[in-house]
Structure formats: structure tokens, C-alpha cells
Design a protein around this nucleic acid. Sequence first.
RNA 1: GCUCAGAUGGUGGAACUGGUAGACACGCAGGACUUAAAAUCCUGUUCCCGUAAACGGAGUGCGGGUUCGAUUCCCGCUCUGAGUACCA
Length: 951
Amino acid sequence: MDYQFKDIEKKWQRFWADHQTFKTEDETTKPKYYVLDMFPYPSGAGLHVGHPLGYIASDIFARYKRLKGFNVLHPMGYDSFGLPAEQYAIQTGQHPAITTEANIATYRRQLDQLGFSFDWSREVRTSSPDYYKWTQWIFMQLFNSWYNNDSDKAESIAKLVENFEQNGSAGINAVCDDEVSTFTADEWKALGNHDQQAELLKYRLTYLRESTVNWCPALGTVLANDEVKDGFSERGGYPVEQKKMMQWSMRITAYADRLLKGLDTIDWPEPLKEMQRNWIGKSVGASVRFTIDDLRFTNDENYIEVFTTRADTIFGATFLVLAPEHELVATLTTSEQKAAINAYIAQAKKKSELERMADAKTVSGAFTGSYAINPVNGEKIPIWIADYVLAGYGTGAVMAVPSGDQRDYLFAKHYNLPIIPIIDIQNIETEADPTKDGRYINSDFINGLTYKEATAAVVAKLEEMGAGKAKVNFRMRDAIFGRQRYWGEPVPVYFIGDLPYLIDEKDLPLVLPEVDKYLPTESGEPPLARAVDWKYRTRKSEIGSQKSDLEGANAGKAYEYELSTMPGWAGSSWYWYRYMDAHNDKEFASKQAIEYWKAVDLYIGGSEHATGHLLYSRFWNKFLKDMNLVVEEEPFKKLINQGMIQGRSNFVYRLIDEIGRGTNTFISHGLIREYRTSPLHVDVNIVENDVLNLDKFKKFRPDFADAEFILEKGKYYCGHEVEKMSKSKFNVVNPDDLIERYGADTLRMYEMFLGPLEQSKPWNTNGIEGVFKFLRKFWRLFHDETMKFNVSDDEPTKAELKSLHKIIHKVEEDVERFSFNTSVSSFMIAVNELTDLKCNKRAILQEMVVILSPYAPHICEELWTMLGNEAGTLSYTPYPKFNPAYLIEDEFAYPVSINGKTKMNLNISLSLDAPAIEAAVLASGDVQKYLDGKAPKKVIVVKGRIVNIVI
RNA sequence: GCUCAGAUGGUGGAACUGGUAGACACGCAGGACUUAAAAUCCUGUUCCCGUAAACGGAGUGCGGGUUCGAUUCCCGCUCUGAGUACCA
């Protein structure tokens, strides 16, 4: 029988499902290996050919590891909360759960078709209450924790309370809000429960605070920074504005340093680590207090604090600049300057983020009229405001050193402020010079010192004066953790007055209530406000840690729940643990499961999650580690980014008539220079190797039914271009179509054959034939001319064994370094060789089946059983053992170069050593011809490699 | 602007530690089989000169360097893609 991929693939997909071939046990006899894919959001559009790229790679790796004797965890699930389902619900009134369910069914069908070896018994869905129960539970742990800088880890709030009760706020070194109170133990105890809770909220790892948020009116929700692009929402492209709002936040900044340090311990692509480093944005410097030269300010508030990374340049500081939003601006502004300052603030406020960015080159600012004192030299320097200083970074104020900082330089030039050189080699004629080389001048006690010495000396002096101290600043902000949306996890919190309280653990999961519409209420409250009688009722018998508020008059009352839901990244920040123990209803995963599987050994996914999912996941993981709930500091040991698959669009060229109208005549791409044409996207699915299928084109759109063509060599050639893959560009290729035509094994191998996994590349179906032909050729090795199964038990020859062992070794090497494209080529070479050798020996072919099975599992399962093996055993059979003895050659065709240019090959025994090889080469007639009687200047011989003769 | 990645035939790409550049595949051209088409198979295919071959020359974005030898290492530049954006 010929290679019937359709029957074969259906048969084995069913077999794997029926026999649960890939169900993973949490056993400990084999070494474990955890291969994870980034789980998809099940969108309505289904998979396109770009999505499976990473899944195919991870599946090959997982299958390979099984053959190598590992107990492999290779699960899949769905990140099923999200905006598109909700948008659809708003438009149609359909409950997002229903849409989501339907989309998941499509995804599942498409994934199954590709023959993945997922253990579906462990499937997770972030939108399922069994799952989000634990997302809520983790939220509660965060609420009940604070970050202790002294132990450098998160600890229980109870411990903090204990400390307050014994010592007050003294000795607490926490990551917390800026405005925490100081109090004694007695003062603490004297506080009412309300005030105590309000104070504790400033320490909790998830907390409420008024924050400036990215409010998107069109979506009716708040967006995270990474969901906003250039002032517009990433999804939908709606305008985003800044708005103040009470929001849940996550104190991720507590982990900034650990998130940074951890990067050095994990095997991730360098660019991705770099992106996280930039995002965290650690800068080491100093905070410096500049006294305000104004008697109106009281003694303990008479300073402006700035952050600088160049404390060494402080003698060059000739003015201060505050952000227009800085809280001191109003008080600093003198009456003469009031008009100018107000005008400037008004103008700055009007400018959108986008305009501010485009305007980066223009210098603008205003003088407050006030002065400050430079602490190191007592100089009186003016205080300005300008929008190049950002309120959200550092202290929202800078000391301007125009000789060393280009923005300060431009500002000083524009407003005629002094520029003082502070380093002897500094050249500041046309621009600032931020050099750190040379020696200091005009700088009093650091004159003559080097950069390192000067920085230390200045910081020491400032500390001594009480005017500053060394400080580390981070660019990263606490992450906002709330959406005014319906389709997300409810926050397990209710309110008594203005204070949030956790619901009882027994009441988890807090299930998403039904609502009549998925829109905000008329008064602007989130959709959850529409739920009827959705209130938390406390029970006196089940009161928790914050008990005093639930007792007495409050017991049994109904309280408002938090109405916002969790953001998209909540459910994906811990899901890899759920796969370890997906059905546990006592814990998010059992201790044994976590201790066995530990962390993800290989994680494959796109780099677009670099600063979102991958950062938040590391944060939650570190927190869970601090709580002793998990065992590893880093969740993903090795990570690979699969490249993006871009679209490759095809174009037809419509002839334009004299008056500029499009006609119904189309010009082949090679001829368009001779005509006036306009390009038109054409569906790539009716184009093959850039040749248009004319009949299908006529059916593509009704107005093309009577299209005419000007052809080249009888064919219509299309033009092409690389663009984003999108429906509107008609360049979306659906894997279903390709599977229908060539089968999943061909598609799997072709996606790998396209090029290195990590490289972005345009999808191009040209060439898939080659892979398909390869599989047929492989099939034919097992069959005679009449397509009858025919395998012999004869002893293999030396040449056959050599081919086999070459590929055994090559595939091992390739898979270990994730170079899947090169192993596909090598398979082709091996099959070409075995075809030439007319090899049908079981001893060779059975091993070939095992080696190829991770790549093309269906055809291999079929051949495996045809060879007489038990069905389903292929996935767990041992990988063939490489024997280098079969590759040993006794002769090598040495390339002989003259002056580095290869001229010929000479067969020489590999047993000869260098001098003997040299003699043999020089004796050769062909070499003599080049030497022309002269002696060579030099002869380089690398045994087994090359001979180079220098003349 | 900054950071990172990349540039090899008509196309996707290979060459892993400096050692035969262009493996493998697509496409194209020619041929076999066929009434024909499809499928399959065979041959050729970096470019230039020689218009058959041998042979010769050039060649991995550009310009230099190190080396017996460079796609690979170093310096400078150009272009493409991604991320980031006044971060003090």
C-alpha cells in the first residue's frame, strides 16, 4: 500500500487518546523532565500556521526525552480569561463562557490533528472555577504578606502585627508605601481596628492605593503599561488617558533586585534577559537634599530631594528641575512667576504622551522664582520646572548638570543658565560630555580625584552632612492588578467601609456572578456591579484573622464585594504548578508533586511575553518560594523563543486604463513594468509557488469571474511581500488545509525544516512538497515496487550501518541544541543514502523508525507495528545507541589548497601522520604541476582535515 | 537616540571548536515514462569568462585587520528586524 497519511494519522490519534499513551505518572524511578508550552488564549480565529511552531518543537523534544528514558511532563491548557470573548459578549449578549468553550473545542481539534503528545488529563483552564479558586487563594496569600528587607523575603502579616505589638514600627525594614506612620507598641495597640488595618494595607504585597492608571474609556477598563502602545490600547487601538483611581496593586518592586539577580542563574536567550533588565531598570546612585532658600518653609520640609546616578558631578549642578506635577511646585512658585508657571503646567497637561515624545527635541520649561542651596558648596541655584523630568521616576526632581547631561545642557543653553565644566578633559563646546575619565576641576574637595574616588567622597560627605545617601532606584513600578471588566477572576475581597477584607478561605472559589449585560453600569461602575444581590455575608462562627470587625454589630451583615476583576496575567502567573497536580481540590498542587517536578526544565514561547507574563510569573514564583509553597527560586530553567511567523502576501497586478480606472485585466508580475498597474492582495491559498491558479482566482471574487490575464510562459506569476499575517491581507494559512493535503507528519517536519526555531521568518508553503516526498520515500524503503511490505532480516552492510549511526548521532546533537531544521535535512540525506543502497533491512529500518518518531510520529507508529512491534510501545522504546566505530574511515579525501584556495582532493590513509601526509601530497603529480619545480615555502597539514601548501 | 538580533545562490537555509562555502529542499532548465496530464524517476543549476569539457577568475552586506587559511575572530561602516523611549 502506498503511504496513506490520512488513515494512518486518524488511526494513531485515536489510539493515543483511547490508550492514554501520554498520560504521565508522578513516579520517581525515572528522571523527570518538564517540557512546557506557553498556553494559548483560545481566540475565535483558531490556529494559524505560526501558532504550532513552538508546540511542534516542544513535542519533538518531549518525545525525544521519553525515548531517552525520562519521565516527561508535557501538558497543555488554555489561558481562557480575556478581552476578545468579553468584547464578543458585549456585542452579542452571549456569555463569554459559551464563546470560550466553543473556541477551546476548535483549538483542541486543531491541536489533536497535529499529533501532539500532550497529557490531556492535566488540562487547565484559567477561567474554570476549580482553577481560579487557587488564583484567588494565591492572591489571599499575597494580601496576608509583607516584604521584610532584613530577611530579604516575604513574611506573614501576622509576624508584622506581632512586631508592631511588641516594638511598634521601630526596627521594621519593609518594602511599603512611602507614607507609613511611626508609632510605639502602645500607640499601635491604642489604634482602632480600622486604623490598624489601614496601616497594614500599606505593607501588604497586594494592596489598594490611589494610582494614576491608564484608563481606556472605549474599553471601559484600566490597562497595564505593557498593554498600552504609544498612548493607545494594544488591543483595539483605542485612546488611553491618565486617570486617578483606587486600584489593586502588586508590590512587585519588592522583588526587583531578586528578579534582576535571578536572570544570571537561568538559561534564557540573552536579548530576553536584557529586556527584563531594562524593564527593571536598576540604577545605582544617590539621593541628595537641596535646601530651599525660602523662610516660608519649615525646618523639616525645607528641602527638595533629587535622585542622581552621578553624585560626582554635583559641583556642576547649576539649577534644579522639577516635574510639572511635583507637589512642591505650587508653594515654590513666587507671585511674579505664577502666571508663567501655570501657563506651562496647563500646556504640559494638554500634551498627550504621544506629543511629548514627538516633541522630545524641543526645550521647554518655566522658572518658579525660588532658589535652592547646593549642599556641597552653598551655591544658590534656581529651581525650574520642565516636562523632561518625569513625575513617576525617582523623586520627580533632578539636579541639572549641564556640562555632563545633554538634556540639561540644551535646557541651560536655551534659558541662559550657567554651564560649569567639572572634569579636566571635558569638551563642552557644542554638547554635554558625560565622560567619567579624567580628573575633577572646579569641585572643591574632589578636585584631582578619579570618578570612582570622587563618587565615594561625595556620597560620604553628603551622608556626614545629612544631606544625602547612596540609593538604588528602579524604573519598574508596582503592577496594577485590577480591571473594570467582567471576564476575569473575581477578587476575593469585600469591603467594610473603605477597607478591604479577605473572604474566608472556605468560601473559595468566589464564583463570577451572572450579569444582565457585560458593560459598566450607568454610574461607571464595573460590570460586576450589575450582579443581583451579590454580597458577602459573614458568619460569626467562621471569622478569620481580621476578626474584630466581623464581630458584634457587623456579624451576619452583607458586604459589597470588590467589583473589579483580576488582570489577564493573574491566571498565567502560576499555571505550570497546576499541571503538576491538576485535580487537587485541597491545595493548588500537592507538596509531593511540586517536590518531584520542581520547575519547568524547558519552556517554549514567544518573546512578546518578555516583560509581562515572564516577569510576573517569576515574581509570583519567588513569593511562593518565600512562603515555602514551592521549591525553586526560578520557575523556568531554560527558555526558548520561537521566532514569529510572518505572513507572505501574494499580489496580482490590475491593469489601469487611460483615465485611471481599474480594468479586469491582470498582468503577470514579470511584465508589470510595461503597463500601468495597481497591486492587489490575492489569497495565498490559490497561489502555488507564486503561480496563480486562474480558475480559483475567477471564483475568488464575483467581479473576477470574467477576468483576463496577460501571462508569462503561459503562467500568471504573482508578486510577493512579507507582512503581518492577517485576514485582510489574504495571507493567513490554516494548518487544517495543509494537514488535509499533506498530513500532520509532513506539516510538523516542514515547520521545522523552514529554518532555525528562534528565527523569525515569513511563512511560505513553497517547499512543503519536498518534505512530503521525503516521507513517501521513507515509506517506500519498507515496501517493494508493488508497494507490498517487504523487510528483510539480513545482516546490514557496513555502508548501511554507517548511514544509520550517522543519523543516530546527528539527531541527538541537533535535538539537544534545538536545531530541528538541520535534523530534518539529515533525515533526508539518510533516506537518500539508504534508497541508493536499496536497504530494506530490519536492523536498520527499525532503528530509523525510532529516531524519526519524535518528528513524524504517525507514520512511525504505523511502520513500528508493521515491523511486528506492539502498538503504542514506540513512544517509550529506548533511543538507539550510537556506536562511533561504524563511522571510522581508513581513508580521507584531503582537500589540498595552494595558498588557501582548494585545488584538488587526494585520498590518503588516515593512519598516516603529518610528515607522511606531507610527503604523499608533495609526491602527487598534480601538486608538482602547481609547484612548477620550486620548493613550497610552507606546508600546513591538519590530520583528517586539510593540507595547505604555501608557494 | 539607546539596547539586542541579523545580512550567505532565483527562494528557505547548511557549514557546530578558524580548515573543501552553497549540504538538504524549493524553484527553474533539460530528459525518461505516458495518447496526454498528474505522479514518479534521472541530469544540470553561485556568478563571470570561455558560449561542450578541462581549465581560469570572482564570491558569504561594505571597507580594513589578524592568520598558512576567515561566512566564522578583531576594528570601522551600511542596511534590515525587534525591544525601549526624555529614567536623571
